[in-house]
Every structure is written in C-alpha cells, then in structure tokens.
Nucleic acid binder design. Structure first.
Length: 286
DNA sequence: CCGTTAACCTGAGAGC
DNA sequence: TGCTCTCAGGTTAACG
C-alpha cells in the first residue's frame, strides 16, 4: 500500500477525522511490530489532543502539546481504520481501504470519544513510535533526503547528491536519503515517463535526463495523490475507498503487455534489481 | 562505495 | 480440497 501518495491520502483523511480531538486511551494488543511498541504508549498519549497531523516521506506524524509526537509507519501492509464505537450508528467513517475492520492483526487501538482508530498490519513491518521532543524527531529523520514535492528538489540538488556517485537510477530513486517518498511502484512509473532505463548509472545521466527525473517524479506523485493513491490488492468482501492510480500504471504489473507508447511494438519486461521487481520498455527507456 | 541477499512477517494466488 | 512455491506497496544489516 504505502508510498508517499497513499500515506498522504491517509494524512488528509486523518486531518478530517481526528484533528483537535483528544485521545482517551490506547490499547496495545501486540507490541511486536517492526520495532517493539513502547510499554508506556498508553501513558504517553492518553488524554492528549492532536494539534497537527503531518506527513514526512512515508511517515504519518501526530503532533501533541509540548512538541510531543507519535510517528506511524505502515511498512508493507499497515493500514489505519476508523471505526464507530459499538453503541454508535453505522456510518461511512472509514477513510482508507475498508469500512469493515479486518478480523485479524488489529495490533493497536486508539480510542476517541465516538470512534476508534485501529492499526492493522498482517506482516508487522510497520511501527508506531513516540517522541518526547522535536530534537529527537528531527534526529530520527536526519537521514532523509528532500521530499519529492519539495521545491528545493531541483537540478542543482540532484547534481549535488549524485556527484561522484556510481549507482543505478532505480536504486537511486528508492534510496530515501536522496529523495524521500518514492517507492517501488512510482520509481518504475517515473522511469517510464522519463524514458530512462532503470539500470542506467546516475553518473551517465545528462542534465536533460536529470530534469526529466525531477519533473516526472513530481508529476507522477501528484497525479497519484489526485487519484487517491494506488490500491494493488483489493480485499474480497470489503467495500471502501481504494485508490484509482493503479488503473493508470504504464509499466508496473504489466509484464508481457504491450508498451503504451503507440508507436512502440515492444512488450514490457520484468527484471529484478536489488530484489525489487522492475518493469520497463527496452525500446522506449534507454 | 556499490549491488545483492537475507531478514523481518503473513497471506494471496498459481501450479500441480 | 490441499500442498508447495513465489511474490508483495519498506527498510536495513551483512556480505563480496
């Protein structure tokens, strides 16, 4: 699920649902997420009001009084579910993925007055982490590069960070310390739009190609946000909002399908680069 | 430094 | 129905 656009959609929904609301209590059903959830999480954030909902890269950040924060990362399979409390009427309060709460893997439940926010994560690669002040949060993010939509992400920035580097562009786009927020789906899509071969070394890219990378990174990410993100796996028997950007994939999940460039007769091929599936058109991406 | 592999996990889907 | 195998939107350590 969660690259930058999907996390941004969650963030926007959270703003509508939990901003300025007070947390009553937190129930931790399973502490064993990617990192062990603090024993005192309930103590830390109970009775605190959410003053801001932020997003940095693929992280959601809830901001409390006195610069205290709760960080949420979804890993590969984490989702948040807004669920009415039992005594309330059924409404369409859910904002992501499902209006039906999954049965299993509901690891953390955050209670508000009329509803609860449930963190579900079958694979448990995601995590929640509490920060007592801004310094520790900033330190935690100190290895992250510029946000893909940051205006400072321009030709000069890219030239600077690839200087004396030898690295293929696919791995470069996935490396969060250069550009933050791009994941495997969007890296594939960005390279197709830019007409660049994923194996191409960044030290072989000319300025025009670097400019294309910047332009299409921003464009693809913005388009995906507009479409509500991408939903690859649709869960059976679960209705609810899912993203629509998967309908616009040019290469991702399109192995052996025809290249969508009308003048091209090639089929999209799939290879593995550093263990991540990479889809591209040999003819269009040089 | 660079690319690859494995590791952390569960579950869906394919093939048999 | 079920078994085995591969793969999945992320991140990070270890290895060669």
């Amino acid at each position: 699920m969660p690259e930058l656009p999907e996390v941004e959609i969650v963030k926007q929904s959270l703003e509508k649902s939990i901003l300025y609301k007070k947390i009553n209590k937190v129930l931790v059903n399973n502490r064993n997420l990617r990192f062990k959830v603090e024993k005192n999480l309930n103590k830390f954030i109970s009775n605190k009001k959410i003053l801001k909902v932020l997003r940095r890269s693929k992280y959601i950040i809830l901001n409390f009084h006195k610069n205290q924060f709760l960080l949420i990362h979804f890993g590969m399979s984490g989702t948040l579910h807004l669920v009415r409390n039992n005594n309330s009427k059924k409404t369409n309060l859910s904002f992501y993925h499902s209006i039906n709460l999954p049965q299993k893997h509901n690891h953390i439940v955050i209670f508000f007055n009329n509803f609860k926010l449930v963190y579900n994560d079958p694979r448990r690669f995601g995590y929640l982490k509490f920060f007592k002040n801004l310094d520790t949060l900033n330190y935690y993010f100190s290895n992250l590069g510029l946000e893909v939509l940051d205006k400072r992400l321009n030709l000069n920035y890219l030239k600077k960070v690839i200087k004396n580097k030898s690295k293929n562009i696919k791995n470069f786009l996935l490396d969060q310390k250069y550009i933050a927020g791009i994941g495997n789906i969007y890296a594939n899509e960005i390279l197709y739009y830019s007409k660049i071969n994923p194996y191409k070394n960044v030290n072989k890219l000319n300025y025009l190609e670097l400019k294309k990378i910047i332009y299409f990174s921003k464009l693809v990410i913005k388009k995906a946000i507009k479409k509500g993100g991408s939903s690859i796996k649709d869960f059976k028997n679960i209705k609810g909002k899912s993203g629509l950007f998967q309908n616009e994939f040019k290469v991702y999940n399109r192995e052996n399908k025809k290249c969508l460039n009308k003048t091209c007769l090639e089929k999209i091929i799939k290879v593995f680069i550093s263990n991540r599936s990479s889809y591209f058109c040999k003819n269009c991406q040089k």
